[in-house]
């Protein structure tokens, strides 16, 4: 039986087609930039012997978190990954996460600032974020394929969209949380809007923004794993392969590697954020 169907899916499909056709220059530019970024990052990391890179990571972990325990965990965790023969996919996953997070921040922080300072922007952006955050992660893979085909660029595209909301939300929150009296004080000295932003609001919001970035990184990591379905490779790719070949041992090893990477990134970011607070 025929019935009248509201063409939501159809409209979205048409929009995607339209963008693919008419904005290919934009998708192409995005693809070029991210591809260059990924290969540069992966090449750089793979240039070092794994043990050198492990100590570099440990040093970074210590520098950001000021905690010996976190540095030690970094060394042991990454050594275990190396030992499991998962070094190359881990490096690739870390590269994907870093690039995605970077792009998500480049877009998310300005949007967060905008929504904090402009109530119209706030009213538009927040509902969109609500929808974005309730949408199942897999759905973001769909537009990636027509735009970028299979491969890491599409994965990054989906990851950026999936992981951006907390960066926007917490940047906005951090700025809005600055006490009114402080903003008044800044105003009473004749600050311009940007002076107020850079000298008061952003510094005060930093711990909250860092928490947002932390969440973005964690979401990016989880999405990068899921994006193996559209050819992201990396640790997610290993899991995906193990599922298809029914190799639970390989699958779990890759899973453990993902957990290790997640813990390292989370601890570093948490401590980096907390360290900012008392500075």
């Amino acid at each position: 039986m025929e019935h009248l169907r509201i063409p939501i899916g159809k409209t979205i499909e048409l929009t995607i087609d339209f963008i693919t056709e008419h904005f290919s220059f934009a998708t192409k530019a995005f693809a070029d930039v991210t591809e260059t970024g990924i290969s540069f990052l992966v090449d750089t990391m793979m240039f070092f012997p794994p043990w050198v890179l492990i100590f570099i990571f440990a040093a970074i972990a210590f520098f950001l978190s000021r905690r010996k325990s976190i540095a030690a965990f970094t060394v042991l965790g990454l050594a275990l990954i190396w030992n499991m023969g998962l070094w190359a996919p881990t490096v690739s996953t870390i590269a994907l996460v870093l690039i995605s997070t970077l792009i998500a921040m480049l877009i998310g922080l300005p949007l967060g600032i905008l929504s904090a300072l402009n109530s119209t922007a706030y009213r538009i952006i927040m509902p969109i974020l609500d929808v974005m955050q309730t949408m199942p992660a897999f759905v973001y893979l769909i537009p990636a394929i027509p735009f970028f085909g299979l491969g890491p660029v599409g994965a990054i595209f989906s990851t950026v969209i999936f992981s951006m909301p907390p960066a926007i939300r917490l940047t906005c929150l951090g700025i809005k949380q600055v006490p009114v009296e402080l903003v008044e004080a800044a105003d009473s000295f004749g600050s311009t809007r940007s002076q107020k932003l850079f000298k008061l609001q952003l510094p005060m919001a930093t711990p909250t923004i860092m928490a947002g970035i932390n969440q973005t990184i964690m979401l990016a990591l989880s999405m990068v794993v899921i994006a193996a379905m559209i050819g992201a490779k990396g640790l997610g790719g290993e899991v995906w392969k193990a599922i298809q070949r029914l190799e639970p041992d390989k699958g779990f090893e890759a899973g453990i590697a993902i957990v290790i990477v997640a813990i390292i990134l989370d601890r570093i970011m948490q401590k980096a954020g907390a360290g900012q607070k008392t500075a």
Binding site: E181, A185, G190, M204
Partner: peptide, 22 residues
């Protein structure tokens, strides 16, 4: 003009100090 006025003519002191904590 208002910004200049605030910068040069008015000094303000607040009840809860309103110091910049960082």
């Amino acid at each position: 003009e208002l910004r200049i006025l605030r910068q040069t003519r008015f000094g303000m002191v607040f009840q809860h100090f309103a110091l910049f904590p960082r």
